[in-house]
Design a protein around this nucleic acid. Structure first.
Length: 488
RNA sequence: GGCGCAUUCGUCUAGCGGCCCAGGACACCGCCCUCUCAAGGCGGAGAUCGGGGGUUCGAAUCCCCCAUGCGCUACCA
């Protein structure tokens, strides 16, 4: 890598950042960190009409949640600020003026109506090449007249009408376009705001960005940017167009694909580590066998050479698996702490606050069963409940009858009441013995006990559950189950 | 319609001329473990490498054509 690496993530606050946007941020960050470079965040808020309130914070909060830190940008400042394009309008205006002065850009007075007309016409003739350059060849006199009439105008770039523009994209390789097929795009809108094309080139230059790593949807705009670099006499950056991330329907990721905002993944119970690991593997790979790896490992090994070209389809099932892997790696305390906010959110209010020490003993029992933290309340609710609802419980296991179940539970209660140890392994031993005496199969006996203690058919190991519940709760629940059976 | 990019199991991918009649992972199926559910272990099915031409002793890997998908084609980014 020659020269200092400075990359940027330049989100537009016209919506909430989805996996694709964040993956772009992640790759830029990875590239910066791997190459001892700087990572800049710049907000591209040049579309005043489509601004979404709160989007900037959602983007920044999302990055912070993931631990993607930026060296310069909103919230942290930096020597190349401001980092909000809406506060840099003068810079773009100057660039546009300079281009006009040297004949590389011109004012265009065409209104939307005429533009629509031109488009319609071209469509009918099946030759669409964008703006027809109507205002490009206006005489000075005509310009003065239009200006005097006070007509609103935009500034358009005068694309070369011959030759080609070529780029050696770090990821795509050599790509070229015929200049006469690129139309005279708008630089400055009539409201004085720049378009993306002008702003991105001016800022990337002024902020001394070395590499532009962005999604592939921008590849088609690259000849425009390259021509702008040339006209402005800026040394061009290195471009790298990242593969897109598509929804399961193979279309560009959007709201209809479920969770859109990165923060929604947080609420859905995904761990930042898992999400990052998952995203890193969307378009990048380390080798032929590594999938679960820490961000640290990804960072150490991240190179653009190993970024793929084909678009990737976002498969939430794989994210679920990855999340489960990371949950299983957590120790009891950490998992409990991670589960806590979800329990506070999802558990019935009367069961709060949650006793953290109790939670920390529950955590290991559900650790290998959780795919997301959002399942925590559902999976652990019975530990906290005062009373269980046996309405849907299967207290009488197949092969037993009601009387047998009452008998089994009663005997179990008596035995447990005087058990010396309430530790899982000991409980298992005594209950297995009791089950044998009662002539019940483990499946029947433990199944009935499980339902009595949890009102569920699937739980962690019965004896572990009993140990954590403790003798008092266990006896109370067995008693309640017996009462329930007797009133049936 | 024009321009551009892409194309290996359903999905994420490995592969950069012979190690590949294609490897790993998720999901799926079966078996084992087992008090249920998971987790874990073992095994299975699943890709004629989009199709067709070349180049080469030899191609998933290089070239050409076609098809398909996606992106751009806005005073949106």
């Amino acid at each position: 890598m020659t020269g200092a690496v400075r990359v940027r993530y330049a989100p537009s606050p016209t919506g909430f950042p989805h996996i694709g946007n964040i993956r772009t941020a992640l790759f830029n960050w990875l590239f910066a960190r791997r190459n001892d470079g700087q990572f800049v965040v710049r907000v591209e808020d040049t579309d005043q009409q489509r601004l979404v309130p709160g989007a900037v914070d959602a983007i920044l909060d999302g990055l912070e949640w993931l631990g993607i830190d930026w060296d310069e940008g909103p919230r942290v400042g930096g020597p190349y600020g401001p980092y909000l394009q809406s506060e840099r309008l003068e810079l773009y205006r100057q660039a546009a003026e300079k281009l006009i002065a040297q004949g590389a850009a011109y004012r265009c007075y065409c209104d939307r109506e005429r533009l629509a007309q031109v488009r319609k016409q071209q469509e009918a003739e099946k030759r669409s090449i964008g703006y027809d350059r109507h205002c490009r060849n206006l005489s000075d006199g005509e310009r003065r007249e239009l200006e005097a009439a006070g007509l609103p105008s935009v500034v358009r770039f005068a694309m070369p009408t011959s030759g080609i523009t070529e780029v050696d994209d770090i990821i795509r390789g050599h790509v070229e376009w015929q200049n006469d097929l690129v139309d005279d795009f708008i630089l400055l809108k009539s409201d004085g705001f720049p378009t993306y094309h002008l702003a991105v080139v001016v800022d990337d230059h002024l902020m001394e960005i070395s590499h532009v790593l962005r999604a592939e949807e921008w590849l088609s705009s690259t000849p425009r940017h390259l021509q702008l670099y040339r006209a402005l006499d800026y040394p061009p950056v290195q471009f790298g167009h990242l593969p897109m991330i598509l929804g399961p329907d193979r279309a560009k990721l959007s709201k209809r694909h479920g969770a859109t905002s990165i923060l929604e993944y947080k609420d859905a119970g995904y761990l930042p580590e898992a999400l990052e690991n998952f995203m890193a593997l969307l378009g990048w790979s380390l080798d032929d066998h590594s999938d679960v790896m820490s961000l640290e490992v990804v960072k150490e090994n991240f190179t653009l050479e190993r970024v793929g070209k084909p678009a990737a389809i976002f498969d939430i099932g794989r994210l679920d698996w990855m999340n489960g892997v990371y949950i299983r790696q957590m120790d009891a305390e950490t998992l409990a702490a991670a589960m806590l906010p979800f329990l506070e959110r999802d558990l019935p209010a009367e069961l709060l606050p949650v006793d953290f020490d109790y939670l920390a003993r529950i955590a290991p029992l559900v650790r290998e069963r959780l795919k997301t933290l959002a399942e925590a309340a559902d999976m652990t609710g019975y530990f906290f409940a005062e009373e269980l609802d046996y309405g849907g419980a299967n207290l009488v296991q197949r092969g037993m009858d009601g009387a047998g179940a009452v008998d089994a539970l009663t005997k179990a209660g008596e035995t447990l009441g005087r058990a010396e140890s309430f530790v899982s392994a000991d409980l298992e031993q005594t209950l297995r013995a009791l089950g044998g005496e009662l002539g019940l199969r483990p499946r029947e006996f433990f199944g009935t006990l499980r339902e009595a203690l949890t009102a569920r058919s699937a739980t962690p190991s019965l004896f572990d559950v009993m140990e954590v519940l403790g003798r008092e709760r266990v006896l109370a629940r067995i008693g309640a189950a017996v009462d329930f059976l007797k009133t049936q």
